[in-house]
Amino acid sequence: MKRVAFIIALLCVLSPLAAHEGYYYTLSLSIFPYLSIPHYADDIPMRTAGGGEASIGALGFRKSHYDFSLELRYRGTTASIPHGFYRARGFDSLGSDLRFAYQLKEQIALFATVGTEINFYRGVDSAFASFSTALGAEFLLVENSFHRLSLTVPITLHLRKEITAIQTAVGLRYQYFSTRDGR
C-alpha cells in the first residue's frame, strides 16, 4: 500500500507540469484478439480469446518528432473459446506503461511501449504478475491546437510466466494539450 500511495503522490506532484508547453493528457481505447501460446504441453498450440483496453496518461510530453508518456492501463481479457475439456480463464489487468513515439510523416507515427501489470483471474480469486511490450503504428485522424485523435494499430506481447500471448489491437488515442500550440 505504501508503494501505491507513493506512486499516487508522485503523479499528483508531477501533474501540474502538464500546464507547460508540450505536455498533454491522453485517453486510449482499443480492442484486440488475444492468442495465448502456452509454455506447457496443451491439447492445442494456442488458445484464442478477446479483450479491450483503456489507458489514461497524466504525464505526456510531445516535442518535435518525439512523444513520451507514462500511462495507467486497464485491460480486460475474456475466457478463451472452449476446446476439448479446457478453456483459458479470463482476467482483468491493472498496470502501467512507458510509451515512446516517433513521428515518421505528418500523419503517421511509430510507437513502442513497455509495461507491467497485475492480473486477476475472473471469479476465482487468483492473481499473477506479468509484463507487456508493444510495437505499433499511429495514424492521425483529426487535430487542432488543443486536441489530437489518432487510430492506433499495436501488436502487443503479453509476457506471462506460463504463457506468451500476442494481441493485435485496433484503437483510438485522444490527446489533450493544455496550452495552445503545445504540440
Partner: peptide, 13 residues
C-alpha cells in the same frame, strides 16, 4: 488471427 484460431479447426475429444 482467424486462421490461427485453433479451436475452430481442431477435433475435440
Amino acid at each position: 488471427l482467424l486462421l490461427f484460431s485453433c479451436e475452430l479447426f481442431m477435433e475435440e475429444p
